[in-house]
Simulated assay, not measured.
Amino acid sequence: MAAHVTEPPTTPDGRYIVVRGRLWRKSDPALAPEERQALVDDLMAARRAVRAALNAGDEAELRRARDRVQQAKVGLGERGPVWWDDNAPDLDRHMARNTCYADWHSVVERGG
C-alpha cells in the first residue's frame, strides 16, 4: 500500500515551502512549463550522478555532479538571485518561526 504524501505548506506569498519548520525557496513561477521541466530533469540526473559519485568514491565526479545540481537549482530560481522584485530578503533555509512568517507558521503548525 502506498503511503499518502501531503504537499508541504506554502507561504501565503508563494515564495517558500516549509519542511520541518524550515523555509525552502520555491521555483520561479514565471518559468515556462517546458523550461521548468527541463531544469527538473537536469536536477534529477545531477542528483543521481551525486549518488553514483559518492558510491564510487570519485571526488572529481562528485564535484562536477554537485556543480550540476547547483546550476539546475539556480536555473529554477531555488538558489542564486531571488525571482521576486519587491526587495524582500531571501529567507531560504531560515526557521519559519524566526521570520516574518512566524505568525502564519504557528497557525499552520496547529492545523488552523
Results as ranks from 00 to 15, higher is better:
residue 7 E to W: 04
residue 61 E to L: 05
residue 13 D to L: 02
residue 21 G to R: 06
residue 49 A to S: 14
residue 23 L to N: 10
residue 87 N to L: 13
residue 8 P to T: 04
residue 62 L to Y: 07
residue 105 H to L: 14
residue 77 G to S: 05
residue 57 G to C: 02
residue 97 R to G: 12
residue 74 V to H: 04
residue 72 A to L: 02
residue 61 E to K: 10
residue 101 Y to C: 03
residue 52 A to T: 12
residue 100 C to Q: 15
residue 33 P to K: 11
residue 61 E to H: 08
residue 32 A to E: 12
residue 95 M to I: 12
residue 34 E to W: 03
residue 81 P to G: 09
residue 46 A to M: 01
residue 93 R to S: 14
residue 66 R to M: 05
residue 23 L to G: 02
residue 66 R to V: 01
residue 59 E to K: 11
residue 68 R to D: 03
residue 48 R to L: 14
residue 61 E to S: 11
residue 110 R to C: 10
residue 76 L to V: 07
residue 25 R to E: 09
residue 74 V to G: 06
residue 59 E to P: 05
residue 4 H to P: 05
residue 24 W to I: 15
residue 105 H to D: 09
residue 37 Q to I: 08
residue 35 E to G: 05
residue 110 R to T: 11
residue 40 V to N: 05
residue 107 V to Y: 11
residue 62 L to A: 04
residue 64 R to A: 10
residue 3 A to Y: 13
residue 34 E to Y: 12
residue 26 K to V: 03
residue 85 D to S: 09
residue 48 R to A: 14
residue 53 A to D: 01
residue 24 W to S: 13
residue 55 N to V: 14
residue 103 D to G: 10
residue 79 R to L: 14
residue 103 D to E: 14
residue 67 D to I: 06
residue 35 E to I: 07
residue 2 A to G: 10
residue 104 W to R: 08
residue 13 D to M: 02
residue 85 D to H: 11
residue 97 R to I: 13
residue 98 N to R: 14
residue 110 R to D: 13
residue 41 D to R: 07
residue 36 R to N: 06
residue 75 G to Q: 03
residue 21 G to T: 14
residue 22 R to K: 15
residue 93 R to E: 15
residue 39 L to K: 03
residue 95 M to W: 12
residue 112 G to N: 10
residue 81 P to W: 01
residue 60 A to S: 09
residue 37 Q to N: 12
residue 44 M to D: 15
residue 21 G to Y: 02
residue 12 P to F: 09
residue 21 G to C: 11
residue 22 R to S: 14
residue 47 R to Q: 06
residue 6 T to K: 08
residue 47 R to P: 03
residue 39 L to Q: 08
residue 104 W to N: 04
residue 112 G to L: 06
residue 71 Q to L: 14
residue 88 A to M: 06
residue 89 P to R: 06
residue 22 R to V: 15
residue 96 A to R: 07
residue 72 A to Y: 00
residue 85 D to N: 12
residue 53 A to I: 00
residue 89 P to S: 07
residue 18 V to W: 00
residue 88 A to L: 10
residue 105 H to S: 12
residue 86 D to K: 04
residue 40 V to H: 03
residue 51 R to F: 07
residue 105 H to K: 10
residue 21 G to N: 07
residue 76 L to P: 04
residue 99 T to R: 02
residue 96 A to I: 08
residue 14 G to F: 02
residue 34 E to D: 15
residue 71 Q to V: 10
residue 45 A to M: 11
residue 107 V to M: 11
residue 52 A to D: 13
residue 17 I to G: 10
residue 95 M to Q: 12
residue 33 P to C: 12
residue 16 Y to F: 03
residue 68 R to Q: 01
residue 88 A to P: 00
residue 89 P to Q: 07
residue 38 A to V: 06
residue 78 E to M: 15
residue 62 L to P: 02
residue 18 V to Y: 01
residue 11 T to H: 11
residue 106 S to F: 07
residue 96 A to Y: 04
residue 10 T to I: 15
residue 42 D to G: 06
residue 13 D to Y: 04
residue 18 V to P: 01
residue 50 V to R: 00
residue 31 L to M: 08
residue 89 P to I: 10
